[in-house]
Nucleic acid binder design. Sequence first.
RNA 1: GGCCCGGUCGUCAAGCGGUUAAGACACCGCCCUUUCACGGCGGGUUCACGAGUUCGAAUCUCGUCCGGGUCACCA
Length: 483
Amino acid sequence: MENKMVRTRFAPSPTGFMHVGNLRTALFEYLIAKSQHGQFVLRIEDTDQERLVEGAVDVIYNTLKQVGLQHDEGPDLGGEYGPYVQSQRKDLYKPYAEQLVREGKAYYCFCSKERLDSLHDEQGIGGYDRHCRDLPAEEVQRLLDAGTPYVIRQKMPIEGATTFHDAVFGDITIENKELEDQILLKSDGYPTYNFANVIDDHLMHITHVVRGCEYLTSTPKYNLLYEAFGWELPTYVHLPLIMGKNEDGSVSKLSKRHGSTSFAGLVEEGYLPETIVNYIALLGWCPKDNREIFSLAELAENFSIDGISKAPSVFDYEKLAWFNGEYLRAKTPEEFTALAMPYYQQVFGDTQVDWAVLTSILQPRVVRLTDIPSMIGFLKELPEYDKDLFINKKSKANLENAPVMLKAAIEALTALPDWNVTAIHDCLIGLAQQLEVKNGTLLWPVRIAAAGMQVTPGGAMEILAILGKEESLRRLELGLAKL
RNA sequence: GGCCCGGUCGUCAAGCGGUUAAGACACCGCCCUUUCACGGCGGGUUCACGAGUUCGAAUCUCGUCCGGGUCACCA
């Protein structure tokens, strides 16, 4: 048997932001397609006219572009099965719904919103009471002729059960009586998500329907629709949900209170797009080997559906941060400097400093780009500090020898013609030898005086180099005066 | 509440009837060292519970418990 070309689609609603759960769904859809040399299509699901958000479609394009999920067909690219925006396909759905009505697999429902609401309130249980399911044909025609607003509902089997197969969860059986006569066509003429989805997935030759687990229980409704039309069922791939950890230790669906949940929010917090992709790929999927660092192309090479897990996973910002640090360290110094520059400038403004030296101390240490300003603030302005900082047991630094060391350092550095890391290094190391003290005994007080902080990114040499000769000497004198 | 799904270190997870139950993050200790970080090495009562099947169960079955999802003219 010949294998059919794999086609997946990402079908987001333009809500204005990209939730990481959505992004992961898009990623998996992309990977399933690309790992099998298939196609990945983008379709915009904007059937809810009340929820339209200005510019929301651009957020989708931009996000996909930033993470490199290049689609093969979509509203912007066109393709064989367009249009790829559901609102532009509006007229296409109604005939399908009417076909089902003719065949007795769906029916007109004239119930008002109010009636449905009261139904809800009184019964306390959800679900439509199938009031219009068996309306006499003449009555239906009369109401239709009178121009009564209506919706079209799917006629669910009352008895029996429906079983479907999911590529990750296996066989799942649901009693048909649990299925509601769901609305296919809304009174405004637009299809519901469920209906449009089935029609479009079929028309667009989608082979793998990939979506969050929250759709698991409604899948029989989809299948009943495919069957009603006599269409071939797609392969279902339901993904486990992404959870967030609450303060009390419990977990719930990842939401704002857990931290940033949108792609844009994460980027704003200093995470790299490639970090985010790599991390979310590993949420609910595990490669055959133990590897963790994957580029998008490497993910596509290694991806397979059987590596998807069933259990929901907790989004761990700490691990994300670790990944980010790994990615940042893997950059060339030039790349890192370019990424960090906006944050450098937050601190230094127009002032020029030796960016290369700054990068050399920051690159191994930064996990989030947004942490940079607070890490380097001391270079711009010397913090207030207590002279007790000059005491460090391990370096054998104390209040007695600190002034001696500083004095010697000032003298040596003042005489130094060149001002760069190497020159400063050689000068101070030479001085320590000359004074017959261990490096730390000299370097500790120098670093404290230069930085005014007990813990600093980078050592004394780099800090002095960045500060420049004049400022360095000024700070060392200040430190000396303190003692 | 009904229905559906899930449950291996705090977190991500491998595991598919026989393993000393991998690895990663986080945490702790040591080393390196110019503080911190990076890097290196090492550490930890993890299979929710109870029955059953089996020579043998984290792996199979059942029950319990816990967690999540779902019950819209939203997607």
